[in-house]
Design a binder for these strands. Structure first.
Length: 873
RNA sequence: GGAGGCAUAGCUCAGCUGGGAGAGCGCUUGCCUUACAAGCAAGAUGUCAUAGGUUCAAGUCCUAUUGUCUCCACCA
């Protein structure tokens, strides 16, 4: 046995992981004699560093995966990373700027070269950090969303969707980030409340007969107005419809039109229509055939359609326009106004709705079957309530803008013939135009949304579009584990992609967990600086302690508050496990243990074996339901309270006693229970269990062992109940000692009377060891005991303890009175229930029986207490 | 505007399909008892947000209210 006095995870975690990986324990075989179990990791961004969210997400997955592996499944947990198109590109661009360069200066090829260099340098960080956490990922199958396999899948899917008419190119209003200079999907826009104004502007009639007042939050878009709309039912403006207005600050005239989209009771009831810069206005424009005038370029600067404001940044233009309108007497009023403004989820710049030619995925035909499979439970969300969020999104989904004006990503496989304008979308790069034969082809510059490739992750990583062995064996995967914040971005898109391209769901279950928040309940974020670095915690407390802390008190779907002080209880618990193991192993050193089960168990042995068996049952049940917090609690309680506080103490008389046989027998039970414990908790705390396992004298790794399962051969129910009574006696004795102020070192003598004698006689050794009892005598009644005594009342007997001068009659009588009160409360409760005809008639028989028994016992107890109290008087 | 979560001990939270309120931390008291002071033992602390309802029985199910957090939509 070679274990330090305290648990020091730093000394073994890294080497144990290296050994697991080297031996290929994480790499499953395609083996049809075993059931498969597979999970694909939510691929972290290559730009990322491990944060608490990753730590939680991957701890959950690893626990499930290790449990399944030990249960005999051919288990694949497939790792990989995401190229994170925008996030990475932003990093590279920033780096270039430090050198005083723009990406256009170096060109696409050089830019991509630098991006790959960056990926090579930093993209592996998070992958190493996952190893520190202990994740049993199959690194031999590691994927990257831009590697050859995934890229092939992307191309295949894009072309197939295009041929089916599910991908099209068109001019639509999209969300444009002027900072990142790319289009964004709806999901990539976040909304923030912002204090601004509602500007009321006068639009004069062209015939000079006065003006209309329109209200707007974006006065600069006035330059692109092509109409003003009113509600057709609005009597205030009925006679104005069709009239022309002079658009302020320009030389253009625009019509007043009628459209239902305008609300009667908001603002002035007149809305300026800017089809090029507002999604609703765009729709109105289509209905009324209005011209679409773009007034801003890709960086948010006013373009040649902006008259005097050309060249101004959008913010500057707003200021100038507002002041110019004021000078011309066209500003009716300015009201302070708070409203939601869309911002880029990456850089938080205000998003500009802009008309632009982009590629879109037609969502309706894809969403329908994806809704159906959740509706009919082919896929279930855990907890179920997240299905509502999913339906809500899927049922109101709009077409997905998938083109991005970036360089880092999957370049769209579309070519335009410069001779005839033909659009060519092919799996292989075309050499000439199939229509006119021209070789003057120009490839589309744009790349795809990062999530386009993530959507294919469950099958692209397994080899799609090739029919690989992995794909056949491991697809569909069995489970997806993720936080609720990417249900739209990722989960929903994987579901419709799996159905469309594989003809099958990607996974039958989606386990949703919450977000890790700080001690105040705020999201951990860079800007707040309230994040905790999991690697720092691992360095300080060990990965096992982090994993255990993260699964303490968690329930599916709910957020957890985390602060460093949650680490100590876990670390202490692992130290406890460490030292309990030391106790067993130290004593077992050099001793020839009999085979477990080849002897008669003691009452204490049967008690712990019964409890262990029950714990095994519960832990398996909770793991099956993904109730990791509950499984964690059961393990904690069993190991600390039952095994350490009771059973280990109970074994001490045997281990430190004379009998070699008894010692060996006890040790074999200790060793058996310890090994079962190590296996049980291994999925939660893989490192410490592997480390201790090495000391247990077995060959091989614990992670290859079979997970414990419930067994009927340990159903010692009667013995278990009897031993619980022994424990109660010990507890009562300790309580009396403490209350009466008996020195811990002072041994006491006790006299037992009643039926309790039978089980106390057989367990005397435990009373002596655990309750500081020296002598035990058995008497017929209290009359046989002399001197000043305190007493303990049980249903089936009494214990008298002569304590001489330590007995304070007043104190003793108070103690007994208190006990009596609580027993009487119990009796009242029991009688109340049993006198209720409804309860006796309708409650389960066993429950009624149990209540009757308890009532009977309490009455016996009361009788004794009353008598003792009388005696004291 | 729509949807959902949460409200339990001083703090952070468990409590699964209804059947005598739990843990960790903190607090009080006593102990370095040959695995562990990162520990041991004995304690104290709760109108389970409020009001109704269903039920023999409600922290648990239903309705409403209050407080709080989140998501979706985005009316200029």
């Amino acid at each position: 046995m070679n274990m330090e006095k305290n648990f020091e995870p730093q000394s073994f975690e890294t080497s144990i992981y290296a050994e697991w990986e080297k031996n290929g324990y994480f790499t499953p075989e395609v083996d049809y004699s075993k059931p498969p179990f597979s999970i694909v990791i939510p691929p972290p961004n290559i730009t990322g560093q491990l944060h608490m969210g990753h730590a939680l997400n991957n701890t959950i997955q690893d626990i499930i995966v290790r449990h399944k592996r030990m249960q005999g499944y051919s288990t694949l947990w497939l790792p990989g990373t995401d190229h994170a198109s925008i996030a990475t590109e932003v990093k590279i661009v920033d780096k270039l700027r430090e050198e005083g360069l723009e990406k256009e200066d170096i060109g696409r090829e050089e830019f991509l070269k630098r991006a790959y260099e960056w990926k090579a340098a930093y993209g592996g960080r998070i992958v190493q950090q996952l190893r520190r956490l202990g994740c049993s990922l199959d690194w031999s199958r590691e994927a990257f969303t831009m590697d050859e396999r995934c890229s092939k899948a992307v191309r295949e899917v894009f072309v197939n969707l295009y041929r089916k008419g599910l991908i099209y190119r068109g001019s639509r209003i999209i969300n444009w980030c002027p900072h990142c200079r790319t289009a964004l999907s709806d999901a990539e826009v976040e909304y923030e409340p912002q204090k601004s104004n509602l500007w009321h502007i006068r639009y004069p009639y062209a015939d000079g007969s006065g003006y209309m007042v329109i209200a707007t939050t974006r006065p600069e878009t006035l330059l692109g107005d092509t109409a003003v709309a009113v509600n057709p039912k609005d009597s205030r403006y009925a006679d104005k419809i069709g009239k022309m207005l002079k658009l302020p600050l320009t030389d253009r005239e625009i019509p007043v039109i009628a459209d239902d989209y305008v609300e009667l009771d908001f603002g002035t009831g007149c809305v300026k229509i800017t089809p090029a810069h507002d999604p609703n206005d765009f729709e109105v424009g289509l209905r009324h055939n209005l011209p679409v005038i773009r007034i801003m370029d890709d960086s948010g600067v006013i373009n040649e359609n902006g008259y005097a404001y050309k060249g101004l940044d959008r913010d500057e233009a707003r200021k100038r326009i507002v002041s110019d309108l004021g000078e011309q007497g066209l500003m009716e009023k300015i009201e302070p106004y708070e409203h939601n403004v869309g911002v880029c989820y990456r850089c938080h710049s205000t998003v500009e709705p802009i008309v632009s030619k982009q590629w879109f995925v037609r969502m309706e035909p894809l969403a329908k079957p994806a809704i159906k499979v959740v509706r009919n439970k082919k896929i279930s969300f855990i907890p179920e309530r997240f299905e509502k969020i999913y339906f809500n999104w899927m049922e109101n989904i709009r077409d997905w803008c998938v083109s991005r004006q970036l360089w880092w990503g999957h370049q769209i496989p579309a070519w335009y013939c410069e001779e005839c304008g033909e659009v060519i979308v092919e799996k292989h790069d075309p050499e000439k135009c199939p229509k006119c034969g021209s070789v003057r082809l120009k490839r589309d510059e744009d790349v795809l949304d990062t999530w386009f490739s993530s959507a294919l992750w469950p099958f692209s990583t397994l080899g799609y579009p090739d029919e690989t062995e992995d794909l056949k064996y491991f697809y569909p995967t069995n489970l997806l584990v993720t936080a609720y914040d990417i249900i739209f971005f990722w989960v929903a898109r994987m579901i419709f992609s799996g159905l469309e391209h594989m003809g099958e769901i990607p996974f039958p279950e989606v386990l949703i967990h919450g977000i890790v928040r700080d001690a105040e309940g705020r999201k951990m974020s860079k800007s707040l600086g309230n994040g905790i670095d999991p690697i720092m915690l691992i360095d300080k407390y060990g990965a096992d302690a982090l994993r255990f802390s993260l699964t303490t008190g968690v329930a599916p779907g709910s957020d957890i508050r985390f602060s460093e002080d949650k680490m100590e209880p876990s670390r202490n618990f692992l130290n406890k496990l460490w030292n309990a193991s030391r106790y067993v192993l130290m004593n077992a050193d050099g001793i020839n243990l009999p085979e477990f089960g080849s002897f008669n168990y003691s009452s204490a042995d049967k008690w712990i074996l019964y409890k262990l068996n029950r714990t095994v049952k519960e832990v398996n049940a909770y793991l099956k339901k993904y109730e990791l917090g509950m499984a964690n609690a059961k393990l904690y309680d069993f190991i600390w309270s039952d095994f350490c506080d009771w059973y280990i103490e109970l074994t001490k008389p045997a281990l430190y006693g004379e009998s070699v046989n008894e010692k060996a027998r006890t040790l074999s039970v200790l060793m058996y229970v310890l090994k079962q414990i190590l296996k049980l908790i291994h999925p939660f705390t893989p490192f410490i269990t592997e480390r201790i396992w090495k000391e247990c004298g077995d060959v091989g790794a614990i992670m290859l062992e079979t997970y414990p399962s419930y067994s009927k051969k340990f159903l010692f129910t009667a013995e278990f109940r009897r031993f619980e009574k022994v424990k109660d006696v010990i507890r009562s004795l300790r309580n009396v000692r403490a209350e009466m102020g008996v020195q811990p070192s002072k041994k006491i003598g006790v006299s037992v009377c009643g039926e309790a004698e039978s089980y106390i006689r057989r367990n005397e050794v435990y009373l002596k060891k655990l309750a500081g009892v020296e002598t035990i005598s058995y008497v017929k009644s209290k009359a046989d005991v002399s001197g000043k005594i305190v007493s303990i009342a049980m249903a089936d007997g009494e214990i008298f303890i002569p304590l001489g001068d330590l007995v304070d009659f007043k104190k003793e009588s108070e103690r007994l009175e208190k006990e009596l009160r609580s027993v009487e409360n119990e009796i009242r409760r029991g009688e109340g229930m049993l006198s209720n005809a409804g309860f006796v008639a309708k409650a389960p028989e066993a429950l009624v029986e149990q209540e009757r028994r308890k009532l009977e016992e309490n009455k016996l107890k009361r009788e004794k207490l009353v008598k003792r109290i009388e005696d004291l008087k």
